[in-house]
Structures are given as C-alpha cells and as structure tokens.
C-alpha cells in the first residue's frame, strides 16, 4: 500500500525514463468507478464507444485486483475470491505488460485510481503516477469550483498533465 507524505509537489519530478512521447492514454477513476478524466494522446485502434471502454477498463482493474489478492503467495489468510476490498487491503498490482502496451496502475487511499497506458518498454512508472496524483490534488481537489465525483473539467490540470506526460518516457 502506498502512503503519501504530503500533498506538496516535489520540487523535482521523477526523471523521464526515455525520450519521446510513449504514452497512449490516461484514465482517472474514483472509487465508484466513475471516469473522472480520460486523456488520449496516441490511440490508433478504437473498438468500443468511450463509455463501454471506461467500463471495461474499470472492470479489468477490479477483477485483476481480486485476482492478485487471492493469488498472493505470501499471505496465509486471503479470504474469498471476488469479495470487494477496500483500497490498501490485500495484495494489489502496479503494472502489467502485453506485447503492445504497458499499463501502470495506482490507487490512492481514498480510492482514486490512476491508470497510464504506455509503450510496452517503458520503465517503472510508480513515481510518475504519484506525481500525477499530486497534480490532481493540487489542481483539482484544491479547486473550489470542483465538486467531488464529477468529471474533471479543469483546463490548467489538463495542460499540466499533458505537459508532464509528454516529457515522460
């Protein structure tokens, strides 16, 4: 489980792992499975409508989490498969890789899920996701006009995220 020291943005964001823009898309979900933000930079293949796509993505993460919680080879008491778990409970996962993409996943203690889909050969992005979470706290949560649980419509946040992800490997 991740714990975050403070909400201040660290003075030096994690160093990019390579050059060029490798990111495909970014999702932010809240704990109820509502997609707060969807950004897309490079997605040639689209098979589903965006709503279906978000549902499928949330379902995949939810099921993968219950799979890893049940499969965890280091804990003795794992409970039953498919029982919903609170954020931070049980064994979670931080990334998976296929031959065409890599998906990095982070869940905050409040159940905010940040998903970044990148080129399969990108390195560890856990620090970058934490940085994006900090951006979310700074630009969205601290925005007095934002009501929690609604889709994010904050130009400044979108711009900062775009800029950060472009600088990323």
């Amino acid at each position: 489980m991740q714990f975050f020291g403070g909400t201040e943005i660290s003075p030096s964001p994690p160093a990019p792992t390579a050059s060029g823009n490798n990111a495909h898309m970014l999702y932010i979900f809240n704990r109820n499975g509502i997609c707060l933000l969807y950004r897309e930079w490079n997605r040639p293949l689209k098979t589903l409508s965006s709503q279906q796509d978000h549902k499928l993505m949330f379902g995949l993460l939810f099921s993968l989490k219950s799979l890893t919680a049940k499969m965890d080879p280091t804990s003795v008491e794992k409970g039953n498969l498919g029982v919903p778990q609170l954020p931070g409970q049980g064994c979670s996962f931080h990334s998976f890789r296929t031959n065409t993409y890599k998906l990095s996943f982070m869940e905050s203690p409040s159940g905010i899920k940040i998903i970044l889909v990148t080129h399969p050969r990108t390195g560890d992005l856990r620090d970058s996701l934490k940085y994006i979470y900090n951006l979310y706290v700074e630009y969205v949560v601290k925005n007095p006009l934002y009501s929690p649980g609604s889709p994010i419509r904050c130009e400044l946040f979108n711009k900062t995220v775009d800029q950060y992800v472009r600088g990323l490997g």
Partner: peptide, 19 residues
C-alpha cells in the same frame, strides 16, 4: 480488447505487490 494498438496478444507479465 483494451489495446491502443492492433495486434495485442494478451498480458505477458503482471507485476503485483508481492509477486
């Protein structure tokens, strides 16, 4: 299904917290 590029053949490596 969720691949942004065509020709995806499924998960090869899943990195969980403990395995």
């Amino acid at each position: 299904q969720l691949s942004p590029v065509s020709g995806c053949s499924g998960i090869e490596l899943l990195q969980a917290d403990t395995f």
